[in-house]
Simulated scan of single mutants.
Amino acid sequence: MLIAEVSYRPVFAMRGRIPALRDLVQGMRGRDVTQLQQALAEAGYRRGSDREGYFGVGTAAALKRLYEKLGYAVPTVPGRTSAIAKNEAEKASGQDIGAAGGGKRDQLVMAPKSEVMFVPSFPARIVTVSDSVGTKISKDLLKLAVGGVRLIGRLNPSEGDIVEPGHVAEVLIEEDGSRHRAAVAKVGDLVTPKAGSKIRQPPYIPVTFKAKAPWKAELNGKSAQITVTSAATSDEVLTVPLSAITAPADGKTSVTVITGSGERRRVRVAAGASADGYVEVTPEGGDLREGDQVVVGR
């Protein structure tokens, strides 16, 4: 929950979809107060007898316990606790009990917007930190990414038609050599980097992969080599380099074989599964065997 400390004060994350747009002070009402109460309850700190959406003494006590647990003093602002007590007594009785007594100037508990970051879901992880220790904060200090670690690969556009959701993949983490089984979850649309970009990148198709168990947090940011199996054969097959396949004007796929005497002969083939620059072939009109030399394009 605690994600940073700025000038000896905490910054912590809590679940909620409404951004922290104002300082929440004891005595306030609103949907953002309800969100704070729900977030505190999720962390184990109940609002006591406070009504939902009202920042009363119960919510203040819950917030105080949270800060104490984190090791910080709860923030306060000057105010009159007698006015808060009067307000709560009127709510409980349904009657106007008159003006509150003079009372002393006291301190009201506050949840500063600078110390609370609401995120829509957990887990969440820090993806960028803009400044370092000892420097003055000049822009947004932190950026969080919600949800678990995702694995997204970049597919060559020429292979976009052969990769589909459900295809099995093997993921090799280059840093430690560990291997993981995964499957294609989603094939995205073609991404073409903007012209004039400082980092030159070729067009690619983003592919999202999923595993049986969630990806571990320690894999975040690590490079991976992904091998996708779009088709597989049960037995050994005859293959040729992909560049050896030709389709002349007659539209019949073939390869050109070089004989022992240096002559060339065309052999019609049916192409099958392909991987790593090779394609499965089945001769349909001629003799083609393991060890034959074939002409490849350049």
Rank of each mutant, 00 (worst) to 15 (best):
L2I: 08
I3F: 02
S7W: 02
S7T: 13
Y8V: 06
V11T: 06
R15V: 14
L21M: 07
L24Y: 01
G27L: 07
G30A: 11
A39Q: 09
A39C: 12
L40I: 03
L40Q: 07
E42M: 10
Y45T: 12
Y45S: 09
D50A: 11
R51W: 13
E52Y: 04
G58R: 11
T59Y: 11
A60M: 05
Y67G: 12
T81V: 10
A83L: 08
A89G: 09
K91V: 13
A92Y: 02
G101P: 02
G103K: 04
K104T: 14
K113V: 01
V116T: 06
P120C: 10
P120S: 07
P120E: 08
A124D: 00
A124W: 03
S130F: 04
S130D: 09
L141Y: 00
V149E: 02
R150L: 07
L151A: 15
N156E: 10
S158G: 07
V171W: 02
R179E: 12
R179N: 08
D189G: 04
P193Q: 09
I199T: 15
R200P: 00
P202T: 08
Y204F: 15
I205G: 01
V207R: 03
A211D: 05
K222W: 10
S223L: 03
Q225E: 10
T229R: 14
A231L: 09
T233D: 15
P241M: 08
P241I: 06
I245W: 00
P248L: 13
D250H: 13
S261P: 04
A275Q: 07
Y278T: 11
G286Y: 10
R289M: 06
Q293T: 13
Q293N: 06
V296D: 04
